[in-house]
């Protein structure tokens, strides 16, 4: 068990360094990063040379790579042109908004996908199952950003139930923390619903099919033959085993949910890390984009590691070895 844990931790570490390496390679694919400045008549060639030295771009490539890794590890992710602040500061200021979206979205979508998937698989081929299965296909086929747009249009613009942008009403003076929280939740409900629904739709079918497969096993028939109540057969025998392969999918789903957060925050002008990615694209804020990608990818690797541990804990075959 301990050995396995150490091995998983090492693998995650290797993955992390490979990911940074890939980011470094991609960032050098476009050629000279200062080429645009060289063509700018307002910037003198001397300034560009000074910048080149300051950024260490005059050094050989392998030195640049080592510097890049050291800088990344110490949190120096560069400088945001748009915000005129270090990238890390910008990211940290916005991260809480995204984390507050992601944690409930992940928890709820996993729970819904689990409950609905199990119930649907149990009623295979009946109305309930057909309805849920086909809606999950529809959700899978719907672009994330378009689902967000539909929600914003219907509940925001037409019905006027929810605000059209932001995380809190801008310029509003709050008399108590409760009032702030209420306003925050009012802005929060649409984005979090969109991310949750899309993630549930993606996960549901996986659990359902996994359950259907488990239901065909002999031990299920044995449990039923013993005369156990359906609920116990379903949740104590079938669902637990159906869940195991689904847990390994959770890591991939987490990466997928982050993609969704980027798109959803963009549609709702929600001031999180995801929206920063969109702003970085629009304003060509290159270091901000790179920093956001490093932070979000690191979080994916971290979550994958935690899921691996969870899997070790959940699977008795591994736990008792």
């Amino acid at each position: 068990m301990k050995k396995l844990l150490i091995r998983r931790a090492l693998t995650s570490l290797i993955t992390f360094f490979s990911a940074i390496t890939i980011v470094f390679i991609i960032s050098r694919l476009s050629g000279d990063p200062l080429a645009e400045l060289l063509e700018n008549p307002e910037v003198s060639p001397e300034t560009v040379e000074a910048l080149r030295r300051a950024f260490g771009l005059d050094q050989p490539l392998h030195m640049q790579y080592i510097n890049f890794i050291i800088a990344t590890l110490s949190g120096q992710l560069g400088y945001s042109i748009n915000y005129k602040r270090p990238v890390l500061d910008v990211l940290i200021a916005k991260l809480p908004y995204t984390v507050a979206l992601l944690i409930p979205a992940i928890t709820l979508s996993n729970y819904f996908a689990y409950r609905l998937g199990v119930e649907s698989g149990w009623r295979r081929g009946r109305k309930f199952d057909v309805l849920l299965t086909s809606s999950s296909l529809f959700i899978r086929a719907t672009p994330h950003f378009w689902l967000a747009i539909l929600f914003l249009y219907v509940f925001g613009a037409v019905l006027n139930w929810a605000p059209l942008f932001g995380a809190v009403t801008p310029g509003k003076v709050f008399e108590s923390p409760w009032e702030w929280l209420l306003d925050y939740l009012w802005h929060y409900i649409l984005p979090v619903s969109v991310i949750t629904i899309r993630a549930t739709g993606a996960m549901f079918l996986y659990i359902r099919n996994s359950l259907v497969e488990v239901l065909g096993e002999d031990y299920i028939m044995a449990a039923m033959a013993k005369g156990l109540p359906d609920k116990i057969v379903l949740y104590k025998h079938a669902a637990r085993n159906a869940l195991l392969p689904a847990v390994t999918m959770m890591g991939l789903r987490y990466a997928f949910i982050i993609d969704g957060a980027v798109l959803t925050e963009t549609v709702f002008s929600y001031p999180g890390t995801g929206r920063l990615v969109f702003e970085a694209i629009i304003f060509r804020d290159y270091y901000l984009l790179q920093g956001a990608i490093i932070i979000l990818t690191t979080s994916v690797i971290l979550v994958n590691f935690l899921i691996d541990i969870l899997y070790l804990y959940l699977d008795p075959r591994v736990r008792y070895r």
Partner: peptide, 26 residues
């Protein structure tokens, strides 16, 4: 296969965004 796993651990859309924005310059 290790390289494939690393690639899969990226949030796919973000990686594509990054690649596309960098490559679009040239």
């Amino acid at each position: 296969m290790r390289a494939t796993d690393v690639w899969l651990s990226f949030p796919g859309l973000l990686l594509t965004i990054f690649l596309a924005t960098v490559l679009i310059k040239t």
